[in-house]
Amino acid sequence: MPIPVPRLSPETPPPTPRILFAAFLKIGLSGFGGVLPFARRALVERRGWLSAAEFNETLSLCQSIPGPNVVNLSVVVGSRFAGPIGALAALAGLVVAPVALVLVLGALWSRYGALGHTPSAIRGLSAAAAGLAAATSLKMARPVLAAAPYTAGPIVLAAFIGVGLLRLPLPWVLLGLAPVSVLVARRRGA
């Protein structure tokens, strides 16, 4: 466990829904292709709402349930400080501006996407986005394969082949692989 940082000092009042909204609005607009590092910086380092250990703990909760991780994080942090209204405020703050912006980009694309050089710009952008996905999957694969190369490797491969090559429906693949993988992890003593 990392050294626990003291909780909110007595003179710091817990954030109100309005402050939660503002904080998550800023987090939502700060990163491209995922904002978790910015969430950590804002919540732990700048505002001191969570200690480093609490952040890790909260993140691990958010990663063990389905859904976009940082969206779950906003709900959990918001509800911890200000109940259901806080959860709603943090969630709304996180998603409202990015969703509006991405819709503007989408509208521009459908309007001008076929004009002039735009199609080739989109082709370049798509190739780069595929590269970002490659880096994401490498970063996620490294610790998992390092922890259990012989047991995790076949599961990774099976999920990739099932969904990526055979194009099987995701529920089948999850139902088929997850129980096996959890049992294997259990026996390994994870």
């Binding site: 996905a133 994401t136 694969a141 998992v144 259990a148 990774v156 999920a159």
Partner: peptide, 15 residues
Amino acid sequence: AGLAPVTVGLVAATF
């Protein structure tokens, strides 16, 4: 720990 490798395979499929 069991879900992690499944996720890695799925993200690789995305790529």
